[in-house]
Design a protein around this nucleic acid. Sequence first.
DNA 1: CTATAGTTGACAGATTTTGTAAGGTATGAT
DNA 2: ATCATACCTTACAAAATCTGTCAACTATAG
Lengths: 142, 142
Amino acid sequence: MRLSTRAQYAVRAMVDLSLHSEGRPVSLKDIALREDIPLNYLEQLFNRLRRGAIVESVRGPGGGYLLARESSAIRVGEIVATVEEPLTPVSCMDKGKGRCTRTAACTTHNVWEMLGERIRTFLDSITLEDLVIEARGRGGEE
Amino acid sequence: MRLSTRAQYAVRAMVDLSLHSEGRPVSLKDIALREDIPLNYLEQLFNRLRRGAIVESVRGPGGGYLLARESSAIRVGEIVATVEEPLTPVSCMDKGKGRCTRTAACTTHNVWEMLGERIRTFLDSITLEDLVIEARGRGGEE
DNA sequence: CTATAGTTGACAGATTTTGTAAGGTATGAT
DNA sequence: ATCATACCTTACAAAATCTGTCAACTATAG
Ligand code: FES
Ligand code: FES
Protein backbone atom coordinates (compact mmCIF):
# COMPACT_ATOMS: atom_id res chain seq x y z
CA MET A 1 0.00 0.00 0.00
CA ARG A 2 2.67 2.43 -1.03
CA LEU A 3 2.45 5.56 -3.06
CA SER A 4 5.02 5.69 -5.85
CA THR A 5 7.63 8.41 -5.66
CA ARG A 6 6.09 9.60 -8.92
CA ALA A 7 3.02 10.61 -7.00
CA GLN A 8 4.97 12.08 -4.12
CA TYR A 9 7.21 14.03 -6.45
CA ALA A 10 4.29 15.26 -8.51
CA VAL A 11 2.35 16.66 -5.59
CA ARG A 12 5.42 18.24 -4.02
CA ALA A 13 6.37 19.75 -7.34
CA MET A 14 2.90 21.13 -7.83
CA VAL A 15 2.98 22.78 -4.42
CA ASP A 16 6.39 24.21 -5.23
CA LEU A 17 5.10 25.48 -8.54
CA SER A 18 2.15 27.17 -6.87
CA LEU A 19 4.37 28.75 -4.25
CA HIS A 20 6.83 30.22 -6.72
CA SER A 21 4.70 31.21 -9.65
CA GLU A 22 3.39 34.73 -9.43
CA GLY A 23 1.56 34.44 -12.68
CA ARG A 24 4.85 33.72 -14.41
CA PRO A 25 5.96 30.32 -15.64
CA VAL A 26 8.29 28.34 -13.41
CA SER A 27 10.98 26.20 -15.01
CA LEU A 28 11.39 22.58 -14.08
CA LYS A 29 15.06 23.22 -13.48
CA ASP A 30 14.18 25.47 -10.57
CA ILE A 31 11.67 23.04 -9.16
CA ALA A 32 14.09 20.16 -9.54
CA LEU A 33 16.73 22.13 -7.69
CA ARG A 34 14.51 23.23 -4.87
CA GLU A 35 12.78 19.92 -4.39
CA ASP A 36 15.76 17.74 -5.13
CA ILE A 37 14.06 15.75 -7.85
CA PRO A 38 15.90 14.49 -10.95
CA LEU A 39 15.16 16.92 -13.76
CA ASN A 40 14.58 14.35 -16.46
CA TYR A 41 12.23 12.46 -14.25
CA LEU A 42 10.28 15.61 -13.48
CA GLU A 43 9.95 16.28 -17.18
CA GLN A 44 8.21 12.99 -17.65
CA LEU A 45 5.86 13.73 -14.79
CA PHE A 46 4.97 17.16 -16.10
CA ASN A 47 4.33 15.71 -19.49
CA ARG A 48 1.63 13.64 -17.93
CA LEU A 49 0.35 16.55 -15.92
CA ARG A 50 0.13 18.65 -19.04
CA ARG A 51 -1.77 15.98 -20.91
CA GLY A 52 -4.00 15.72 -17.88
CA ALA A 53 -4.76 19.42 -18.27
CA ILE A 54 -3.47 20.24 -14.83
CA VAL A 55 -0.63 22.45 -15.99
CA GLU A 56 0.17 24.43 -19.11
CA SER A 57 3.56 24.82 -20.66
CA VAL A 58 5.37 27.82 -22.07
CA ARG A 59 8.26 26.99 -24.32
CA GLY A 60 11.42 28.87 -25.00
CA PRO A 61 13.63 30.96 -22.73
CA GLY A 62 11.83 32.28 -19.70
CA GLY A 63 9.33 29.49 -20.21
CA GLY A 64 8.20 26.85 -17.83
CA TYR A 65 4.91 25.65 -16.43
CA LEU A 66 1.80 27.32 -15.13
CA LEU A 67 -1.21 25.94 -13.35
CA ALA A 68 -3.95 25.30 -15.86
CA ARG A 69 -6.52 26.36 -13.24
CA GLU A 70 -6.62 28.05 -9.88
CA SER A 71 -5.00 25.99 -7.18
CA SER A 72 -8.35 25.77 -5.43
CA ALA A 73 -9.70 23.87 -8.41
CA ILE A 74 -6.92 21.30 -8.49
CA ARG A 75 -7.38 18.33 -6.23
CA VAL A 76 -4.59 16.17 -4.90
CA GLY A 77 -6.40 13.06 -6.05
CA GLU A 78 -6.29 14.39 -9.58
CA ILE A 79 -2.55 14.87 -9.50
CA VAL A 80 -1.93 11.44 -8.11
CA ALA A 81 -4.29 9.73 -10.52
CA THR A 82 -2.67 11.52 -13.43
CA VAL A 83 0.89 10.43 -12.78
CA GLU A 84 0.16 7.08 -11.17
CA GLU A 85 -2.45 5.62 -13.41
CA PRO A 86 -4.50 3.33 -11.23
CA LEU A 87 -5.84 4.64 -7.96
CA THR A 88 -7.52 1.32 -7.34
CA PRO A 89 -6.22 -1.16 -4.81
CA VAL A 90 -6.55 -4.20 -7.04
CA SER A 91 -6.12 -4.79 -10.74
CA CYS A 92 -9.45 -6.46 -11.36
CA MET A 93 -10.99 -2.99 -11.31
CA ASP A 94 -8.82 -1.69 -14.10
CA LYS A 95 -11.48 -2.41 -16.73
CA GLY A 96 -11.36 -5.16 -19.24
CA LYS A 97 -10.05 -7.51 -16.55
CA GLY A 98 -11.81 -10.56 -15.22
CA ARG A 99 -12.37 -11.55 -11.66
CA CYS A 100 -9.38 -12.33 -9.49
CA THR A 101 -9.69 -16.11 -9.41
CA ARG A 102 -11.83 -19.07 -10.17
CA THR A 103 -13.92 -18.37 -7.09
CA ALA A 104 -17.26 -17.64 -8.65
CA ALA A 105 -17.95 -14.64 -6.47
CA CYS A 106 -14.82 -13.14 -5.00
CA THR A 107 -15.27 -12.77 -1.27
CA THR A 108 -13.10 -9.70 -0.96
CA HIS A 109 -13.77 -7.65 -4.05
CA ASN A 110 -16.22 -5.37 -2.30
CA VAL A 111 -13.80 -4.43 0.44
CA TRP A 112 -11.17 -3.31 -2.03
CA GLU A 113 -13.74 -1.47 -4.05
CA MET A 114 -14.87 0.46 -1.00
CA LEU A 115 -11.29 1.05 0.03
CA GLY A 116 -10.55 2.55 -3.35
CA GLU A 117 -13.52 4.83 -3.00
CA ARG A 118 -12.38 6.02 0.40
CA ILE A 119 -8.91 6.77 -0.89
CA ARG A 120 -10.18 8.69 -3.89
CA THR A 121 -12.73 10.59 -1.87
CA PHE A 122 -10.15 11.65 0.66
CA LEU A 123 -7.56 12.74 -1.86
CA ASP A 124 -10.19 14.59 -3.84
CA SER A 125 -11.25 16.47 -0.74
CA ILE A 126 -7.90 18.22 -0.57
CA THR A 127 -6.97 20.94 -3.02
CA LEU A 128 -3.60 22.24 -4.01
CA GLU A 129 -4.61 25.52 -2.41
CA ASP A 130 -5.00 23.79 0.94
CA LEU A 131 -1.43 22.58 0.78
CA VAL A 132 -0.10 25.93 -0.37
CA ILE A 133 -1.81 27.73 2.49
CA GLU A 134 -0.48 25.22 4.95
CA ALA A 135 3.02 25.52 3.55
CA ARG A 136 2.91 29.32 3.66
CA GLY A 137 1.68 29.25 7.22
CA ARG A 138 4.54 27.01 8.27
CA GLY A 139 7.62 28.06 6.40
CA GLY A 140 6.51 31.40 4.98
CA GLU A 141 8.52 33.57 7.35
CA GLU A 142 11.29 32.39 9.70
CA MET B 1 -1.55 2.57 -4.76
CA ARG B 2 -1.87 -1.13 -5.18
CA LEU B 3 -2.42 -3.82 -2.65
CA SER B 4 0.06 -6.66 -2.98
CA THR B 5 -1.35 -10.02 -3.94
CA ARG B 6 0.02 -11.16 -0.60
CA ALA B 7 -2.63 -9.06 1.08
CA GLN B 8 -5.34 -10.13 -1.32
CA TYR B 9 -4.44 -13.78 -0.96
CA ALA B 10 -4.25 -13.54 2.80
CA VAL B 11 -7.67 -12.03 3.23
CA ARG B 12 -9.28 -14.41 0.76
CA ALA B 13 -7.61 -17.34 2.43
CA MET B 14 -8.80 -16.20 5.83
CA VAL B 15 -12.36 -15.96 4.61
CA ASP B 16 -12.06 -19.41 3.08
CA LEU B 17 -10.65 -20.75 6.32
CA SER B 18 -13.53 -19.28 8.29
CA LEU B 19 -16.07 -20.66 5.89
CA HIS B 20 -14.72 -24.20 5.95
CA SER B 21 -13.59 -24.67 9.49
CA GLU B 22 -16.27 -26.06 11.78
CA GLY B 23 -13.99 -25.99 14.74
CA ARG B 24 -11.64 -28.33 12.95
CA PRO B 25 -8.32 -27.31 11.41
CA VAL B 26 -8.28 -26.62 7.70
CA SER B 27 -5.22 -27.59 5.69
CA LEU B 28 -3.51 -25.12 3.43
CA LYS B 29 -3.66 -27.65 0.64
CA ASP B 30 -7.44 -27.37 0.65
CA ILE B 31 -7.40 -23.61 0.78
CA ALA B 32 -4.80 -23.42 -1.96
CA LEU B 33 -6.93 -25.67 -4.14
CA ARG B 34 -10.19 -23.83 -3.55
CA GLU B 35 -8.72 -20.36 -3.84
CA ASP B 36 -6.20 -21.16 -6.54
CA ILE B 37 -3.21 -19.85 -4.62
CA PRO B 38 0.26 -21.46 -4.84
CA LEU B 39 0.64 -23.70 -1.81
CA ASN B 40 4.20 -22.73 -0.97
CA TYR B 41 3.33 -19.09 -1.15
CA LEU B 42 0.35 -19.60 1.09
CA GLU B 43 2.55 -21.33 3.62
CA GLN B 44 4.72 -18.27 3.85
CA LEU B 45 1.71 -16.08 4.38
CA PHE B 46 0.29 -18.29 7.10
CA ASN B 47 3.62 -18.30 8.82
CA ARG B 48 3.29 -14.57 9.19
CA LEU B 49 -0.33 -14.85 10.23
CA ARG B 50 0.59 -17.33 12.91
CA ARG B 51 3.35 -15.12 14.26
CA GLY B 52 0.84 -12.30 14.19
CA ALA B 53 -1.40 -14.38 16.45
CA ILE B 54 -4.23 -14.36 13.95
CA VAL B 55 -4.26 -18.10 13.35
CA GLU B 56 -3.06 -21.16 15.22
CA SER B 57 -1.53 -24.21 13.67
CA VAL B 58 -2.06 -27.90 14.29
CA ARG B 59 0.71 -30.10 13.00
CA GLY B 60 0.63 -33.64 11.80
CA PRO B 61 -1.97 -35.55 9.79
CA GLY B 62 -5.40 -34.03 10.02
CA GLY B 63 -3.73 -30.81 11.02
CA GLY B 64 -4.07 -27.37 9.54
CA TYR B 65 -4.96 -23.93 10.73
CA LEU B 66 -7.57 -22.50 13.05
CA LEU B 67 -8.57 -18.94 13.77
CA ALA B 68 -6.80 -17.77 16.90
CA ARG B 69 -9.90 -15.77 17.82
CA GLU B 70 -13.52 -15.44 16.78
CA SER B 71 -13.87 -14.05 13.31
CA SER B 72 -15.66 -11.06 14.77
CA ALA B 73 -12.47 -10.14 16.60
CA ILE B 74 -10.24 -10.27 13.55
CA ARG B 75 -10.09 -7.13 11.50
CA VAL B 76 -9.16 -6.98 7.84
CA GLY B 77 -6.64 -4.26 8.56
CA GLU B 78 -4.86 -6.63 10.90
CA ILE B 79 -4.54 -9.31 8.28
CA VAL B 80 -3.25 -6.90 5.69
CA ALA B 81 -0.78 -5.25 8.05
CA THR B 82 0.51 -8.63 9.12
CA VAL B 83 1.38 -9.94 5.69
CA GLU B 84 2.19 -6.65 4.03
CA GLU B 85 4.33 -4.92 6.56
CA PRO B 86 3.80 -1.22 6.02
CA LEU B 87 0.28 0.12 5.78
CA THR B 88 1.67 3.61 5.32
CA PRO B 89 1.62 5.39 1.98
CA VAL B 90 5.20 6.68 2.20
CA SER B 91 8.41 5.28 3.60
CA CYS B 92 9.33 8.27 5.75
CA MET B 93 6.77 7.01 8.26
CA ASP B 94 8.41 3.67 8.68
CA LYS B 95 10.30 4.78 11.78
CA GLY B 96 13.95 5.50 11.94
CA LYS B 97 13.70 7.28 8.61
CA GLY B 98 14.30 10.95 8.01
CA ARG B 99 12.18 13.37 6.09
CA CYS B 100 11.64 12.80 2.41
CA THR B 101 13.94 15.51 1.07
CA ARG B 102 16.03 18.50 1.89
CA THR B 103 12.92 20.64 2.06
CA ALA B 104 12.97 21.68 5.68
CA ALA B 105 9.29 21.00 6.22
CA CYS B 106 7.85 18.61 3.69
CA THR B 107 4.77 20.18 2.16
CA THR B 108 2.99 16.91 1.62
CA HIS B 109 3.84 14.75 4.60
CA ASN B 110 0.61 15.57 6.41
CA VAL B 111 -1.57 14.51 3.52
CA TRP B 112 0.03 11.10 3.34
CA GLU B 113 -0.13 10.72 7.06
CA MET B 114 -3.85 11.42 7.05
CA LEU B 115 -4.34 9.16 4.08
CA GLY B 116 -2.65 6.34 5.94
CA GLU B 117 -4.92 6.92 8.90
CA ARG B 118 -8.01 6.77 6.71
CA ILE B 119 -6.89 3.54 5.13
CA ARG B 120 -6.12 1.89 8.43
CA THR B 121 -9.32 3.10 10.03
CA PHE B 122 -11.39 1.78 7.18
CA LEU B 123 -9.75 -1.61 7.05
CA ASP B 124 -9.97 -1.92 10.81
CA SER B 125 -13.68 -1.23 10.69
CA ILE B 126 -14.32 -4.44 8.82
CA THR B 127 -14.08 -7.80 10.51
CA LEU B 128 -13.55 -11.20 9.07
CA GLU B 129 -17.03 -12.05 10.28
CA ASP B 130 -18.48 -9.32 8.09
CA LEU B 131 -16.92 -10.90 5.03
CA VAL B 132 -17.98 -14.39 6.02
CA ILE B 133 -21.57 -13.32 6.47
CA GLU B 134 -21.54 -11.53 3.15
CA ALA B 135 -20.04 -14.56 1.43
CA ARG B 136 -22.61 -16.92 2.98
CA GLY B 137 -25.42 -14.64 1.97
CA ARG B 138 -24.24 -14.59 -1.62
CA GLY B 139 -22.94 -17.99 -2.49
CA GLY B 140 -24.19 -20.07 0.43
CA GLU B 141 -27.03 -21.78 -1.39
CA GLU B 142 -27.68 -21.61 -5.14
C1' DC C 1 21.44 32.40 -34.56
C1' DT C 2 21.99 31.07 -30.08
C1' DA C 3 20.68 29.80 -25.54
C1' DT C 4 16.79 28.35 -23.00
C1' DA C 5 13.44 25.20 -21.83
C1' DG C 6 9.75 22.15 -22.98
C1' DT C 7 8.82 17.25 -25.72
C1' DT C 8 9.47 12.58 -26.62
C1' DG C 9 10.89 7.81 -26.79
C1' DA C 10 14.05 4.36 -25.71
C1' DC C 11 16.35 2.08 -22.37
C1' DA C 12 19.08 0.52 -18.24
C1' DG C 13 19.60 -0.17 -13.21
C1' DA C 14 17.52 -1.06 -9.00
C1' DT C 15 14.03 -2.72 -6.23
C1' DT C 16 10.10 -5.31 -5.05
C1' DT C 17 6.95 -8.76 -5.73
C1' DT C 18 5.78 -13.22 -6.72
C1' DG C 19 6.61 -17.72 -6.90
C1' DT C 20 9.56 -22.18 -6.63
C1' DA C 21 12.49 -25.51 -4.49
C1' DA C 22 14.22 -28.21 -1.06
C1' DG C 23 14.73 -29.53 3.08
C1' DG C 24 13.27 -29.74 7.86
C1' DT C 25 9.98 -30.96 12.16
C1' DA C 26 5.89 -32.62 14.67
C1' DT C 27 2.27 -35.97 15.03
C1' DG C 28 -1.57 -39.27 14.20
C1' DA C 29 -2.36 -43.79 12.37
C1' DT C 30 -1.01 -48.45 11.22
C1' DA D 1 8.72 -48.03 14.67
C1' DT D 2 7.64 -46.18 10.36
C1' DC D 3 5.06 -43.79 7.41
C1' DA D 4 2.25 -40.40 5.52
C1' DT D 5 0.53 -35.89 6.44
C1' DA D 6 0.95 -31.20 6.89
C1' DC D 7 3.15 -27.45 9.10
C1' DC D 8 7.87 -24.77 9.17
C1' DT D 9 11.90 -22.36 7.29
C1' DT D 10 15.35 -20.65 4.36
C1' DA D 11 17.26 -19.72 0.04
C1' DC D 12 16.80 -18.52 -4.34
C1' DA D 13 14.93 -17.47 -9.21
C1' DA D 14 11.67 -15.26 -12.32
C1' DA D 15 8.91 -11.48 -13.27
C1' DA D 16 7.15 -7.07 -12.84
C1' DT D 17 7.54 -2.44 -11.57
C1' DC D 18 9.65 1.63 -10.43
C1' DT D 19 13.15 4.95 -10.84
C1' DG D 20 16.18 7.30 -13.28
C1' DT D 21 19.28 8.36 -17.49
C1' DC D 22 20.21 9.53 -22.23
C1' DA D 23 19.80 11.47 -26.56
C1' DA D 24 17.70 13.90 -29.85
C1' DC D 25 14.11 17.12 -31.07
C1' DT D 26 11.03 21.53 -31.25
C1' DA D 27 9.63 26.17 -30.13
C1' DT D 28 10.77 30.78 -28.91
C1' DA D 29 12.82 35.03 -26.68
C1' DG D 30 16.61 37.97 -27.13
S1 FES E 1 -12.46 -10.07 -8.15
FE1 FES E 1 -11.82 -8.13 -7.55
S2 FES E 1 -10.71 -8.58 -5.77
FE2 FES E 1 -11.32 -10.57 -6.36
S1 FES F 1 8.66 13.88 4.83
FE1 FES F 1 7.06 12.44 4.83
S2 FES F 1 6.24 12.75 2.85
FE2 FES F 1 7.84 14.18 2.83
